[in-house]
Simulated scan of single mutants.
Amino acid sequence: MKTPLTLALEETLYAYCREKGEVVVEEVVMPDDLGIVDTLSLRLLPDDSYEWRCFELKVSKGDFRSPAKLSFVGHYNYFVLPEALYLQVAEEIPEHIGVLVYHGYANPEEHSTPGYLVSGKKARYQELQVNERALLYHLITSQAREVGKAKQTERGLRVFATDQLYKELKRRQPEYDLYGGGVNYYDRFLADTQDQATEALKEELTAYQEAYQDLLLRLEEGE
């Protein structure tokens, strides 16, 4: 599960790349089994060639030093780090890898993103490490995945099977606060379902009582 800080970095980086006119998408599987890059951006240059940038987002020393594969296959490659972490690991960053330093806004609700990025270290150009056509295909595939998610969200719950919804709701334990505010959606779903079932039973009972009274009335009239 992504931490709030990771999500803040991701959102800020996405806006940063879009402002520069780049195509950008998160979590792109690299060709040739070279891992998954956190964020990949593509820029079309004046000579109609492509410029690729790979970004790895890290929020802690443990995260930074993780043995997980770093997919730095682009022309320019960067770490995106909170300022405090950058100061701690600056000496461990390879010379050709750039750094974008994240600063959170004191009042993020007043801004379009949770924070902003400044260049802490420039990235050096390197030749693309994978086949460009394959990389382009993987970018398009990841964009299609995100479009699919957006379409499902827009269409609502009807696109999901009942068992999928149940498993997802059950997964959200009390300590898993999806949107903040201490709301447990699994418990709320169960409570709402029970309330609906109770109301349905009340309506059914009322209908039976009315039918019973009607039957008694007819029997009395028949007598």
Score class of each variant (00 low, 15 high):
P46Y: 07
D177F: 00
M1C: 03
Y86G: 04
V159S: 10
S119A: 14
L7A: 13
P174W: 00
L40S: 08
E221D: 11
E168L: 10
D163H: 10
G156F: 00
G148R: 09
D47Q: 08
R53C: 10
P46G: 03
H96L: 10
A150C: 09
L34E: 13
V101F: 04
V130G: 06
R188L: 14
C54I: 00
R124I: 02
K69F: 10
L169A: 14
Y86C: 03
E168G: 11
G156R: 01
Q194N: 07
K61Q: 14
H103D: 02
S71W: 02
D38S: 08
V29I: 13
L217K: 14
P94L: 09
K121F: 06
K167T: 08
H111Y: 12
K20L: 14
T193S: 15
H111Q: 14
K20M: 11
L70E: 08
G182D: 03
A200T: 06
D195C: 04
K149E: 07
V24S: 14
L57P: 05
E210T: 09
V23M: 12
H138Q: 15
I36C: 11
R18G: 02
I36Q: 05
Y16Q: 11
V73R: 13
A150T: 08
A134N: 12
S49F: 03
L13P: 06
G115A: 05
L100D: 00
E127F: 09
G98S: 04
K58C: 03
S49E: 13
S41Y: 05
M30R: 02
N131M: 00
G180M: 07
H75Q: 09
Q213Y: 09
D195W: 01
L215D: 14
Q173L: 15
Y116E: 09
A15S: 14
T39Q: 14
Q164I: 01
V183T: 09
V99H: 05
V101D: 09
A191W: 04
L205Q: 11
R43H: 12
Q196K: 12
A15G: 08
V80C: 10
V101Y: 05
Y76C: 01
L5S: 04
Q194M: 12
L165S: 03
E26G: 11
V23K: 06
L34F: 08
A161H: 10
Y185T: 06
Q129C: 08
G74H: 06
Q213M: 11
V59H: 01
A90L: 04
A191Y: 06
Y125D: 01
Y186M: 11
C54Y: 01
S41M: 04
V89N: 09
T198S: 12
G104Y: 00
P114D: 07
Q209H: 10
L201I: 09
V159Q: 07
L13A: 11
K2W: 07
Q143D: 05
A197N: 05
E27K: 12
L9K: 08
G181P: 03
Y179N: 13
E221H: 11
Q164Y: 07
L81Y: 02
E10H: 10
D192N: 12
A123M: 06
Q129I: 01
L40A: 06
C54F: 02
P82T: 02
T162V: 12
L117Y: 04
S60Q: 04
A15H: 13
S112V: 07
E95A: 14
V59C: 11
T193R: 11
Y166G: 01
L44I: 12
